[in-house]
Nucleic acid binder design. Sequence first.
DNA 1: TCAATATGTTAGATTATCTGACATCCGCAA
DNA 2: TTGCGGATGTCAGATAATCTAACATATTGA
Lengths: 116, 116
Amino acid sequence: MADDDLLRRRAVLPIGTVMNLTTLTARQIRYFEEQGLVKPLRNAGNHRMYSLNDVDSLIGIVNERRSGMSLADIKRVRQHQRQQTSDAAARRALRDELFNQRFGQSGSSPYGQNFH
Amino acid sequence: MADDDLLRRRAVLPIGTVMNLTTLTARQIRYFEEQGLVKPLRNAGNHRMYSLNDVDSLIGIVNERRSGMSLADIKRVRQHQRQQTSDAAARRALRDELFNQRFGQSGSSPYGQNFH
DNA sequence: TCAATATGTTAGATTATCTGACATCCGCAA
DNA sequence: TTGCGGATGTCAGATAATCTAACATATTGA
């Protein structure tokens, strides 16, 4: 989790590039956005800009659909995953807060990095 | 050297994305092409398409210039490198050919992979 | 200083993307 | 069968991105 991750999160790819990399049509990609499965940013000219992580996610969707899942199924699974990871983040935040109450603001949590 | 490399060689990035990732202007990127420092492909609409390797190369140029090198210097160095690597490729090809003459077409070279 | 290098800027043309709407196709339940 | 919801195609009109070619303007090195 470092420089590479930052790069993968950077929204720099226009939809044409994403079409190339995912085999999806622009229509499909926009529809998936409508369904909340990707959330591209917009550049100054209002064009959607995607990250490499978005591309990975879309390729994942393509594969899941190949194996028979409907968009609704995929949506449900992903919301579940997001919920779980945000639960985990909430637990970590609570743990760190309790730690800081006991030991002051001097340092970081004893569990290593505060964010994973 | 596998899937990842193929991905890095794929020309999928329009010049706007390359501008973002390299801090170069479109004018500069096209000028570097004029000087033979990058060779983007063209899509069906005649727009230049760059690979991640191209982006790396351009970032390298930016850094080399920051450290005082002129474009001519950089060009010279890169041609040298290309020459060396193609020499190496030629040596490997010759080696493999000689090996096949002696041992037939059955298998690959005893040096491991035929291409590095 | 002069010539070569490197970059900016502009105009006009073409391609890419945007939104919104309507059409189509398909699987499934009533 | 009929009809509905999900998924995708397609179109028109508008705006943004990119292209080429040319000229202008620094910047640099002998």
